[in-house]
């Protein structure tokens, strides 16, 4: 499904990703852990093409991402759903409108492009958006403005927008970091439901080790821009966790 091979990325002279390799099979769920600044977000943004790696390759379903071709990049993005820590919704628009923007990638030709640019959607897309909202459990809030929703509800809208794309791969960057623990758990359960029910591969950055243990089978840890642990959650020991988070803490102390 996803194949990341030897990618490097430098930002302002700092090596953020260094020779990072990661393979994810179809239908897997992977939790990415690592201390802040280790390169998790950069990895995620490399996969959906918002960060262009200096070297190395990223392939989806065996096909390399062409970072220089805007149209090809757009076609790749259509197949990848993305969920953010701060939801990234248009706050003034209704939940339904936000969800329907997930269909924009599909409406990219001729009359569909024209109609969607004016601001209209087909009835079948509207029905589909309602279905997706039902799937994430907030169809009763469809016409509510997003800024009136709670954090958990907003994240459900964001997930529905990603599902509207009918993606093969769902990426999430700390999707529960801004939610209380109980709501966060429900959102993680929703990710598993998406994985099992729709067969979508899920890769998510998570901070809470307990939550990772409870919900995921595979965990990949990133430290200093490279994968330092990749395996079953059961194999992740306290020593591993100390190692993953340790030296960076010293670094933070030094910085302070």
């Amino acid at each position: 499904m996803l194949c990341v091979e030897g990618i490097n990325k430098r930002f302002n002279g700092r090596q953020v990703l260094s020779n990072l390799n990661l393979r994810v099979g179809s239908g897997e769920t992977v939790a990415l852990i690592g201390s802040s600044g280790s390169g998790k977000t950069t990895l995620i943004r490399t996969i959906n093409g918002f960060v262009v790696p200096d070297s190395g390759r990223v392939a989806i379903q065996g096909k390399d991402i062409d970072y220089r071709n805007r149209e090809a990049l757009r076609q790749t993005r259509k197949r990848i759903g993305m969920v953010y820590q701060l939801f990234n919704l248009v706050e003034r628009a209704s939940a339904l409108d936000n969800v329907m923007s997930g269909a924009l990638g599909r409406m990219d030709r001729g009359i569909h492009l024209l109609v969607s640019t004016v601001g209209f959607f087909q009835k079948e897309d509207r029905d589909k958006a309602m279905d997706v909202l039902r799937f994430v459990g907030i169809e009763d809030k469809a016409n509510e403005r997003v800024d009136r929703l709670s954090g958990g509800q907003k994240q459900r809208v964001a997930i529905a927008r990603a599902l509207m794309q009918e993606p093969e791969l769902l990426l999430a960057d700390e999707p529960v970091a801004n939610l209380d623990p109980k709501t966060g758990r429900k959102i993680l359960e929703l990710f598993l439901k998406i994985n099992v029910g729709k067969g979508i591969t899920v890769i998510t950055v998570l901070h809470h080790i307990e939550a990772v243990r409870d919900h995921f089978r595979r965990v990949a840890a990133i430290k200093d821009g490279t994968v330092c642990f990749d395996g079953k959650v059961d194999e992740l020991t306290g020593d591993h966790i100390d190692y993953i988070y340790k030296s960076d803490r010293n670094l933070e102390c030094a910085a302070a």
Binding site: F50, R77, K78, V90, S101, L104, M107, S116, G119, M164
Partner: peptide, 22 residues
């Protein structure tokens, strides 16, 4: 706010669609 703009771009929307919807 650039956040929804990026999210819309991540869905594979085109330039004009991003202007209209984000």
């Amino acid at each position: 706010d650039p956040k929804p703009v990026e999210a819309t771009e991540a869905t594979g929307a085109s330039f004009l669609q991003i202007i209209r919807h984000a």
